[in-house]
Design a protein around this nucleic acid. Structure first.
Lengths: 211, 211
DNA sequence: TAGTATCCGTAACTTTTGTTACTGCCACAG
DNA sequence: CTGTGGCAGTAACAAAAGTTACGGATACTA
């Protein structure tokens, strides 16, 4: 039994299921920046994240992007899952933001386990629930908030997921994730710096007081 | 056995489950304009929609609203469901747009059936899938499109759900649903009329060429 | 029929966001 | 050390969306 499977999933899955996961799952190692899922891709396996941070985003026809949410260890992506089951193509794009390790589970198994293990069922439902809530929260910020608030939320969120008050990112990166322009982000960041809420450096932003 | 249960759900659920639904579900009749679910409410039953159109929306702290999607007969709301299972409060608000009939199922049953009936499991998963897709589509329009496009999509969608090219609605109603101001909607509608894509009347909009 | 409320059109203005263009700065490779 | 490319700051302007204000039309009702 792989140590990490137990560590990340041991408290939610029963022994028998853990054993099956161990036997069947294939570990996949990816580097920072690797594309895990392309929009329009067919999917035949769903990933359980063991380690790392995955960024999930939405693309429109013109290739413009908007970040949806991050995935962390112990999580899976209901979005992928949703596509798997319907054997439909992916509606999203997923990029590894850090070096990551995933456990790939073939779809047939995921279906089989749904009937067989209550814990698996709960895990999958929980995953759906979490994603739905993230989506709602994303809609909230886009619909109700102005860009300055969205930017703040972005910084908070990123800081939380990396567990670091220093964020390594360029203004252009942020602009892509929030689907706006670099100039707008620079402008707003500068304003935040002037009010002493952040400290700007080349390729990095230090959060000081953003709550 | 209620005729409508069979008509709307007969092709997806097995006989035994249909019987249980019939025995346990309680029919609830609501009028146009009735509030079915309030933001923050505790939920103890999930609704299966038998007849009518339900509008589901999101509220922010200040009471501003944004329409998320419509529910139609044969559907259920994964959002509600998601809250039910976690016995958490509702994240959304639901209003009957027309006179509607719902079949209320206690949460315990819904959990029980998940293990017992494959068709129920598929139904619930499908519902989650649909809602996720609607959310993504909502995010798309808000994030990538300007108000004129969003308005067009709103009109198309409404027309589809009511199966009528004449939409009975005030500019203010639309403004609430899209979370903008009445003046903006009037302005854009006028522009659409000038290019012969719609015909405006008091309390109603006739769609002519909006594809 | 007069009074009242709602709906819609429009003008004038503000704010927010997006665009273009140019600058200096820094890091790194050669 | 020098050239090159990416990064950030800023100005000036354009477009989109939001706000305020007012007036005319319509429907309803007392």
């Amino acid at each position: 039994m792989q140590e990490e499977i137990k560590r990340n999933y041991g408290h939610i899955f029963e022994e028998e299921l853990l054993q099956e996961i161990n036997d069947i799952g294939v570990i996949k190692q990816v580097n920072s920046g690797d594309e895990l899922i392309r929009t329009g891709q067919y999917l035949s396996a769903m990933p359980l994240l063991i380690d790392g941070v995955i960024k999930v985003m939405r693309e429109d026809e013109d290739g413009f992007e908007l970040m949806l949410y991050y995935l962390e260890k112990g999580e899976t992506c209901a979005m992928t899952l949703s596509c798997c089951t319907g054997s439909a193509v992916s509606e999203i794009r997923a990029i590894a933001e850090t070096e990551s390790r995933l456990l790939m589970i073939p779809i047939e198994k995921m279906e089989e386990w749904l009937g067989k293990y209550k814990s698996w069922r709960n895990f999958i439902f929980d995953s759906y629930h979490q994603r739905l809530m993230e989506m709602v929260s994303t809609i909230d910020t886009i619909a109700f908030k102005k860009m300055d608030e969205r930017l703040l939320e972005y910084l908070r969120n990123k800081s939380k997921h990396y567990n670091d008050s220093e964020i390594k990112v360029t203004h252009q990166d942020i602009a892509f994730d929030l689907h706006t322009s670099r100039v707008v982000i620079s402008r707003l960041l500068k304003r935040l710096e002037k009010t002493n809420r952040i400290k700007l450096n080349r390729n990095s932003i230090k959060l000081i007081d953003i709550d």
